[in-house]
Design a protein around this nucleic acid. Structure first.
Lengths: 335, 335
DNA sequence: TTGAAAGCGCTAACAG
DNA sequence: CTGTTAGCGCTTTCAA
């Protein structure tokens, strides 16, 4: 462990081996035009000196690092962790290593201008491409390819992986209706987000398709937090003709409904069917039914797509748009 | 999104603003000696061109990036994730950003030589310091400071954060003995690891202190996996005078014991008390008692220590050795 | 098969 | 206050 300043450089190796830096560089990069004798000698010196080439210097010249970046709003939520797992798995099967970047603070990253800064920070220097999770920014300036997961815009200028929010909501509704439910509450999400918009649309269209009239009282405004969900679901359950099922905007909202149901002594799902969206990360809520978003699969797909783009296997970078399946887990009660 | 080659550089900005690169650099680094007029002008150009300075180039010159690296064997285990959370929290309160590095593959990283490579990769170029989790290597060559968490050696050449394995094992045993248990089984861990060694030592010393003779039949060899633990605990429970309690080497081992107990129709803790070590990540095993290792706290402490070293607030880099508390969670039955 | 030299984008003296 | 210049450590022509 040394203080500052780079300890051993390619210069040192060259000097110690009695050759020029370019020869060392050739050995480093596995070029063939080096006498096998020199080759071995240099290799030995490299090991003796514990030399490792500087990523910064290397990337600066060659513009290729075999590193993929993953930019996360926050590393702590199950949502983020699941995605990371998927990315990680795809990385393991590739020649790339992974660099997860986070500021440890949602606030810092949330600002769109910051997202651009982070993309640039990584992609314009040390990564060959980045995956960005839930970006608020619809367009980025970047030297290397970008793939996004769950962007907050429908048509960003980068390839993206979306969950099939609309279809998932339709499926959830159809499931509830097949059980005989006709009064189904809905807790909406942050309306500026694409996912929230599409879930609401799925709710509405499913009703329409089934010929069930839309009752505005049954749709209450949430914001993807359990706290708000608790407040609005209380309102929902106080209705004279209360819903027999609630389709919560996301997992957190479902948890909010759960708490209120407990409080009111309603059994789930016997007295009230509840379907969440995304994963239900907390086992205390395991009896909740959920439209499960395959987060890790989204991570994998995004990674594979990115690698394909880096390899120039995909010509049309801008229009890749993958959708991942959603599946309903758990069961509600018939009514 | 452009193909290759860095799009907009400090040169471009200088040209567009009609000044020299050094002036731009001064603005970038918030130096005071720039006419506020020029200052604003350059700032405007920077924004207009969407310019971001290259991390690689910057770090190469200034040897400071405000980035801290976290090297993880594998990103998927709850163990790793808990540590990440702690690091993340400490990072959030600091001026640093976090770069988590992983190869997505334990095998790749496990080899000691690779660990050195990763440390060098980050620390000799783009990070101001790294935290390495559970390193197998006792010494690293690195330009910037290193702090390790749970190293596999007792006295590595870098500052480290350890869990108090010995004391934790003592506490667990004393707890069991206070409940009247005298025949206590122990499933050991991978004996090359410091943590495993110290836990076994705690088991032995606790017995000695209590004057309970050591029975070799009660100590069976595990390897920190639930599979092996299941095999050896079956053996333990088949003993003519079977133990009334089992102190499992780690969380995974405890889960193995749990499965076998279920299988044999033994109720936990009424018929068999079981204490694990580390966290029990899976809620299915929530009725297991565990010596809880404050993983996230270890992450935080390591991060804060590292930052202090980077800031030169700690003179003696090599001998920092922090131990974190372990606490017993859950309860066993008296015998 | 090898070396010399140019430069990647940036910062930090040193001059003006 | 601003420009010129010299590298940071590396890869890559181009010559030898």
């Amino acid at each position: 462990m040394r203080s500052k300043k780079r300890s051993v450089t390619i210069q040192d190796v060259a000097k110690a081996a009695g050759v020029s830096v370019s020869t060392v560089s050739r050995v480093l990069n596995g070029k063939i035009d080096v006498a096998s004798e020199t080759q071995e000698h240099i290799q030995a010196v490299i090991e003796r000196l514990d030399y490792t080439s500087s990523l910064a210097a290397r990337s600066m010249r060659s513009h290729s690092t075999n590193l993929i970046g993953l930019i996360m709003p926050d590393i702590e939520y199950p949502y983020a962790i699941e995605i990371m797992k998927g990315v990680n798995r795809a990385i393991a099967d590739s020649e790339y290593d992974l660099l997860v970047y986070t500021t440890g603070n949602v606030q810092k990253l949330a600002a769109a201008s910051h997202e651009q800064r982070f993309v640039a920070l990584l992609n314009n220097s040390i990564t060959d491409g980045v995956i960005i999770v839930a970006p608020a920014t619809p367009r980025f300036v970047s030297d290397s390819p970008i793939v996004s997961i769950d962007p907050h815009h429908e048509y960003p200028n980068y390839p993206s992986v979306h969950a099939t929010n609309y279809q998932g909501a339709m499926d959830a509704m159809q499931y509830l209706m097949s059980l005989g439910h006709t009064r189904i509450g809905f807790i909406s999400g942050r309306s500026e987000l694409e996912s929230a918009k599409r879930r609401l649309m799925g709710y509405e269209d499913a009703l329409k398709e089934a010929g069930i009239p839309y009752d505005p009282d049954l749709v209450v405004p949430g914001d993807f937090t359990s706290k708000t969900a608790a407040v609005v679901s209380r309102q929902l359950l106080a209705l004279p003709n209360r819903p027999t099922a609630i389709f919560a905007g996301n997992d957190q909202s479902a948890m909010g409904v759960y708490e209120v149901a407990q409080e009111m002594g309603l059994r789930i799902p016997e007295d009230l069917s509840v379907i969440g969206f995304d994963n239900i990360p907390d086992s205390r809520y395991m009896n909740l039914t959920t439209v499960d978003q395959f987060l890790s699969e989204m991570g994998s797909i995004a990674t594979k797509t990115l690698i394909r783009i880096i390899h120039h296997e995909t010509l049309d970078n801008l229009n890749v748009r993958v959708e991942t399946k959603l599946v309903i887990r758990g069961s509600c009660a018939p009514r």
